[in-house]
Write a protein that binds this DNA or RNA. Sequence first.
DNA 1: CCTCCTTTGACTATTACTGACCTTAGTTCA
DNA 2: TGAACTAAGGTCAGTAATAGTCAAAGGAGG
Lengths: 154, 154
Amino acid sequence: MSSLADHIEAYIKKMLRSSKTNSVELSRAQMADDFSCVPSQINYVLSTRFTLERGYIVESRRGGGGYIRVGRVEVTDCTSHAVRLLQSVGSELTEKQMDNILVHLKDHQVISLQELRLIRGIVQQEVSKIGQGKHVLRASLVRSLLFFIIESKS
Amino acid sequence: MSSLADHIEAYIKKMLRSSKTNSVELSRAQMADDFSCVPSQINYVLSTRFTLERGYIVESRRGGGGYIRVGRVEVTDCTSHAVRLLQSVGSELTEKQMDNILVHLKDHQVISLQELRLIRGIVQQEVSKIGQGKHVLRASLVRSLLFFIIESKS
DNA sequence: CCTCCTTTGACTATTACTGACCTTAGTTCA
DNA sequence: TGAACTAAGGTCAGTAATAGTCAAAGGAGG
């Protein structure tokens, strides 16, 4: 758990946490230099870890004075936010989609890391037991478990 | 007695005991090398000995910087009791069987009345959404929700 | 023998990282 | 004013580093 990408991810998240505005602006070249890597590594991190599904918004501009801005989606009410996310879960869910949603909720303090791990474990176990309809079962389980958490907390 | 798998199991458990965080991270290739076996042997040990029912959560990531993390979850008397109950039922569950289990667990103060109602509601909701495999889905959902409830309490 | 658990290895899947090449935007100067 | 230059960031495909799957072979106990 210590790839370069992880460190860059952690660094950006740390910057985000200490930002009042819920968004940070960074220079790709500068960043690449700081982490001694090629600039496109920054794009890799952004496109794998700071996606909309995970609750982040990335904007950028090229040319002189160019920049990359990373923002978090606004969450005023955790519960309604989670409910909306859940509704966006259709009748099927891939493992990656599930992960993105869980990370999204964890990063926005709707669920804890322990809860995330437990859900992943439970779903993994249940899904491995059946042959067909894995994506459908995953959607049901994730919806149900999240709904249960949210309901219990309110 | 004392197969290679047993040794690997014991080694991981030893690492877990001496870990402050109740979880250890290991490299599959490294491990296989240490025990002079093929990497998939590690998967065998993990999938037969470090299951959720036995109180372990296994997470992993492939690719560069990949890892396998084994974590412990508290297994209380309540957990094993409920798990046994569910195992006796198997992979399918009728509504009546489900109710019997839920009532039993409520009577023994493993879950509250509210939780009982919540589970029933969630399961009803989810099961009504699908055409086939209702009993299988019900079993999965009840198992998962109960496990989650009990784990979260400890 | 028969069965169950273990062990192996060939094949597959996923993730990280790099570098060459492309696009966009601002700046300068004939 | 627009061509050339400079200063960003973007894309994509290839390589390397891990882990996962599955079925077949092996072995110990009944």
